[in-house]
Amino acid sequence: MKPINITAAALGGLALAALMTASAVAEPALIYDAAGKFDKSFNEMAFGGAEMYKAETGNDYSDLEISEDSQREQALRRFASRGANPIVVPGFTWAEPVAVVAAEFPDTNFAIIDAVVDAPNVRSVLFSEQEGTFLVGALAAMKTETGTVGFITAFDFPLLQAFGCGYVQGVKQINADVNVLQNFIGTGFDAFSDPNTANEIGISQLERGADVIFAAAGGAGEGALRAAAEAGKFGIGVDSNQNYLFPGNMLTSMVKRVDVAVANAFTDQLNGEFTAGTQIMNLESGGVSAAMDEFNEALITDEMRATLEDLTARIISGEIKVHDYRSDNSCPVS
């Protein structure tokens, strides 16, 4: 079989060489993390950001999904050598490969989300998720009648623990007596795409008395939100604004503007304003927030809204310091 392959490859090589020279253009590129482009969460938001850029500027972009961890450097290098600029990668697993490839292509700009790479041509975008989840935790504590709220996430993982830790801090800020149930869906990244188990865990938390459930588990979260909606209780969405999913039963969503981070990197490059270094997307810069729209306005009383604004102001002013689980891998409250 191999001789045939080599002949075909030689022929293919000629065709491909022609193809590759034809398509060398300097457009921005986005490479998704292992969960894939349409994960209804993190990567899909990044895709949304690229689409935002396309709609606003009329310029095109390239994107790619990788399937194996060992392909990361290869993918970065191929885009870089083809002249793509900037190259944006969402996800901390990109940190090593970006550090390596950014050094090889000093004239190409890179942006990484959720991790820090210290290089003169890399922008590192970090989100203060704990501030956003603090707010939705406060809302949950104000909404609950049973005195029990739930938190469901994919698996035991520092980033996800940071979500949970901020949430619990928000709950306790309002009422230290409210009990927070915390459960994991699974043990690895595949848990992000397991809405059925999330649904089961949601039902279990409802049976244990929870009446507000925060599902921070990407695409799987919808299962838990459905459980809450079907029981006539409340759910809290994550990453994108998921309030529209179950109008009337969605208290709010903890929005993490990955899309803005991607679109900013693309637009800054276009306008010649790309800057390296670390960017913090927090409550103050609008990087994280508790979503308010027509789907949940009936559920939020004026009092809740006022408290939320007060908390927001106090977090921004630094009066309330929300502990970041990742700073010491532990949470002061549970």
Binding site: I6, A9, G12, L16
Partner: peptide, 10 residues
């Protein structure tokens, strides 16, 4: 198929 073969062995 050309791209696939070239990518793997080219």
């Amino acid at each position: 198929i050309q791209i696939l073969m070239f990518g793997a062995f080219g």
